[in-house]
């Protein structure tokens, strides 16, 4: 007998799974790509993508996938292994919790919930860095700058991802 999660993914269709994986992979690689105009605080694209898909359909963004995406980000960027894995998993958890409240809200409120989730993610990262004793802990001003650019880019990116979700027939679902 097929498990509930498998049925859920099957209902969404393979094109939806492919869309989720491609957007996530692309976001991870783009987040690590060289910036065209010098050193600026780049947005955390992968965080936007994970938050969006978790809101759209939580079953499409299971915790293990978030963990794997974070691990890949850690390995590509050369940062402490486990940091992005933990941060993105924390963000996914926050997205699941805020989902019933943020659903069908106007964009400023949605952005507010995304900001809350990002704050939760930064807190998780800071606590983890401190607990693990990684050099110097988390540089909070730098993280705040990155979070700000992530917030700025979220709304246009959300529209783009919603368009992709519509094209692959992935409507808002309970799970």
């Amino acid at each position: 007998m097929k498990s509930a999660r498998f049925v859920e993914v099957s209902r969404a269709g393979p094109s939806a799974v492919v869309a989720v994986l491609i957007t996530l992979g692309l976001a991870i690689f783009l987040a690590a790509a060289p910036r065209p105009f010098g050193p600026v605080a780049e947005p955390w694209l992968h965080a936007c993508v994970i938050y969006f898909w978790t809101h759209r359909r939580p079953s499409m963004m299971p915790p293990l996938l978030c963990f794997g995406a974070g691990l890949l980000a850690d390995l590509i960027t050369g940062g402490p292994i486990g940091l992005w894995a933990l941060s993105l998993t924390g963000l996914s958890l926050a997205a699941r919790v805020t989902r019933p409240m943020a659903d069908s809200q106007p964009w400023p409120k949605r952005l507010g919930y995304f900001a809350l989730s990002l704050v939760f993610m930064i807190l998780v990262a800071s606590i983890a860095l401190g607990a693990a004793g990684v050099s110097g802990g988390a540089p909070l001003p730098g993280m705040a700058l990155h979070a700000l650019t992530t917030l700025i880019i979220y709304i246009p990116l959300e529209s783009l991802l919603a368009f992709i979700a519509g094209r692959v027939g992935l409507r808002r679902g309970a799970l």
Partner: peptide, 18 residues
Amino acid sequence: VYALVAVAALLLLVLDRP
């Protein structure tokens, strides 16, 4: 699963100290 994944990530972080 979330709890397990968090523990695994923390373990990796501790292991990866310079």
